[in-house]
Design a binder for these strands. Structure first.
Lengths: 145, 145
DNA sequence: ATAACTACTTGCCTAAAGCAAGTATTTTTC
DNA sequence: GAAAAATACTTGCTTTAGGCAAGTAGTTAT
């Protein structure tokens, strides 16, 4: 791979890390950490997910995750139900309260996304999301070598 | 802003956070933390930068940064020289040793970037960096409202 | 000359996260 | 079908990252 290309990728990564940082910062003035919000996100979008699956998606330490989940269970955000078929596994769902909390946080994050991207008009927004789409396709397709 | 657009942005952010995570993970199996490498990066690319400037670029706590710099000075990676005009300011440079270390880490990061993007052919690489370029332009231009 | 400001440092503290050993359950192997 | 290996999760212990506030030294403004 060419050095120039690598430099461009690196430059974009630094740039985009900053963008993500700004958005995340806003979520962070809530009583929940980024990781906690991510856990809620995964459960919200995939009910009855397991801790193991979340670990694989978010790439977090399983011990740490176990504690996060326990904490959110104590706070009645998450509900655990053990599988009757395989008792090692517990399925996770958000409680009504948890769902409410997550949606509020999501709303907050939407707001901060809106702020960061607010200077774009309709057409530019469309262009932007098309770039995103293409990048995703480029980076996920034919990972199979 | 439209909900759909926000969702697409969020989806890309999650996706790209993962990509960056994979690349960063590789750098992290070195004795230096991400923040340390970033500090080296800034000094390497901008000799005689000040701690204040690095703080502004990287958006890190100045106390934490001060310690990082002190640590790297002890390790003879960084050299401080106080400004004779304004003695509050110290200019930072990499030592020969520091430069060597940084370049090695940079090389390592280049390798991991190469791996992540290796399935792309020349044409696709070009397309990718063009998307990056456009996104950067879209997101930096006319921030002035 | 004093007050306000800037650049950086230091002390103190909490939250984030890694690692390893442990428990309970299920699956594999001989 | 018992022992060994594997899986899903938990717990204890520890390190690291990073925030916040007060402190120091130097500079600029009033």
């Amino acid at each position: 791979m060419q050095k120039e290309t690598i430099d461009k990728i690196r430059a974009f990564n630094r740039f985009y890390t900053g963008i993500i940082g700004v958005i995340d910062d806003h979520i962070l003035d809530s009583p929940y950490s980024l990781s906690e919000v991510r856990v809620m996100f995964e459960i919200y979008h995939n009910s009855n997910i397991t801790a193991r699956q979340i670990r694989d998606i978010l790439q977090v330490d399983e011990g740490y995750l176990s504690r996060l989940i326990a904490k959110q269970e104590r706070q009645a955000i998450i509900q655990k139900k053990r599988s009757s078929i395989d008792k090692r596994i517990t399925f996770l769902t958000l409680t009504k309260k948890g769902e409410k909390i997550f949606l509020k946080l999501n709303e907050k994050s939407s707001k901060s996304i809106s702020v960061v991207f607010s200077h774009l008009n309709k057409k530019e927004q469309k262009e932007l999301t098309e770039h995103f789409e293409r990048i995703k396709i480029l980076l996920t397709q034919k990972k199979i070598k």
